[in-house]
Simulated scan of single mutants.
Amino acid sequence: MTEFYAPLVVAGDRRPGELVRIERTAVRHLPDATNAWRIVYVSSDSRGEPIPVSGIVIAAGTAASSTPHPLVVYYPSFHGLGGQCAPSQQLLTGDEPLDHIQAALDRGWTVAVPDGENLGITGLGPHTFLAARAAGQVTLDLARASQAIPEVAQSNPGQAPIVLWGYADGGRGAVWAAELHQEYAPELDLRGIAAGAVVTDPGALVRSAHRGPWLALTLAGMIGLSRAYHHLPLRHVLTEDGLHVVRHAENLSAAQLLEQYRQPLERWCQRPDPWNDAIWRYVLTRESRAHAAAPSVPVHLYHGTHDRVVPVESGGGLFTEYRRRGVDVTWREYDTNHFRTATDSTSDVVAHLSGFLGRPAPSRRANPADRSPTDLR
C-alpha cells in the first residue's frame, strides 16, 4: 500500500483527469464489487495548479451493454487530516462505511470515491479540509479519470452518465463540482447531484462549533484552509503552543482529533476570535461565496433537523438561494441528527439519483482540450 501512495510531482503539461497510476485491487467487504482499481490522477488545487490525487473506483460488473454504465462519484464526509484515513485505504481495511456504496452498486452503477486533496498520497498533507473549489475539481477530475480506466472504457460504449453524491464537507464538494461543471469540465455528462448537510459557510461553522462537542472541527478547518491557501500567512494567529498543536493535529484522523482536542480554538491563538483576523476574514468570505454559475443540472439537498454538527440552516439557506437562482432543486428534512440522517437518507437519495439518470442528457459544451489547469480558474 505504501508504494502505491508514494509521493510524486505532477508536471504542468499533465491534463486534469489524466491517469498517473492504476492498480487493480479487491474490496472484500463489498461482495458485489467484482472489479476495483486504486488510482492516482491529475487534478487542480485552489489556485489552479496541477496536483496528484488518489481515489478508488469500484464496479459491480464488466459485462458490456448497449448503454454506458452510470457513474456515481461519491464524496464521503470528513475522515481526517492525515494518517491512514484516506477512503481508498479504509475501504480495503473494512473501516469505511459501506451502505451508500453498496446501494449504488446494487443498481449496477460504477462508484468512484475520491480521497481529496493531500489525503492518501504520502507526504502531501494535511488534507485541505473545507477548501471547496479544490474539492469540486477533485470530484470532476475523478469522473474523468474513472472513464479512462481501460476495463471501464471497454465495458462502456461511449461516455457514462454521471451523478454526484456527498455528505457534509463531501456534500460541499459535490455542490461546488456542480457549480464548476460548465466552466471546468463541460464535456462530462453530468445528470444531477445529491448533497446532504452541506457546509455552505465555514466561518459560520467555526463560530457555532468553537465551544461545542465538535470544536475539534474548527481546528481541522483552520489547518485545512491554511494548507489550501498556503501562499497566505494564515498561521500567524497561532501561539507557539498553537503551532506545536497544529504540527501534531495535521497527521490525525477525525476520531483522533475529536478525542485529543477538546479545548476552544482560541486556546491556541493570540486572539479570542481568530476568524475575525483580516486575512482569515478574506479566506472565509472567499470560501462562503457561491460560485458565479448556478448548477445547470438538478440538485437534491437534504438535512437533519437536529443536526448539531452542521446546522440545518446551512443547507436550507442553500436551497432557498438555488430556488431564487432558478435551479431545479428539491429539499428534504429528516427528524434526526447528523449521523442518522446520513444513513436514513440512503434509499431516498439513490431514488433521486436514479431519477436524474433517467432524464435526457442535457446539452454540453465541447471538451476544453487546449486549456491548461491554470487556465481553468
Results as ranks from 00 to 15, higher is better:
A11C: 01
A11T: 07
A11D: 14
G12Y: 09
D13F: 09
P16T: 06
P16S: 07
R21K: 09
R24A: 15
T34G: 15
D45A: 04
R47C: 00
G48I: 03
G48M: 08
V57Q: 06
A59R: 02
A64E: 13
V72K: 07
G82W: 02
G83W: 05
Q84F: 07
A86G: 06
T93L: 01
E96G: 06
E96C: 13
L98E: 11
D99C: 01
I101D: 06
Q102L: 10
A103T: 08
A104I: 02
R107E: 15
A112Q: 02
E117Y: 07
G123R: 01
G123K: 07
T139K: 04
A148Q: 15
A148T: 10
I149E: 03
G158H: 12
A160Y: 03
Y167W: 02
Y167T: 01
D169H: 10
D169F: 04
G170V: 09
A178D: 03
L180P: 06
P186D: 15
R191F: 00
T200I: 13
R211H: 14
L217S: 13
L219Y: 08
A220M: 10
G221Y: 03
L225T: 07
L234M: 06
R235S: 03
V237Y: 12
E250R: 14
E250T: 02
E250I: 00
L258W: 01
R271K: 12
R281D: 04
Y282S: 04
S288E: 12
H291S: 04
V299M: 09
H300E: 12
G304Y: 06
R308T: 12
V309N: 13
R324V: 01
R324M: 04
V327K: 12
D328S: 09
D328Q: 10
N337T: 02
N337Q: 06
T341N: 09
A342S: 10
T346F: 00
S347E: 15
D348S: 09
A351K: 11
P360H: 04
P368C: 04
A369L: 11
D370R: 14
D375Q: 14
D375T: 08
L376E: 07
R377G: 00
R377Y: 01
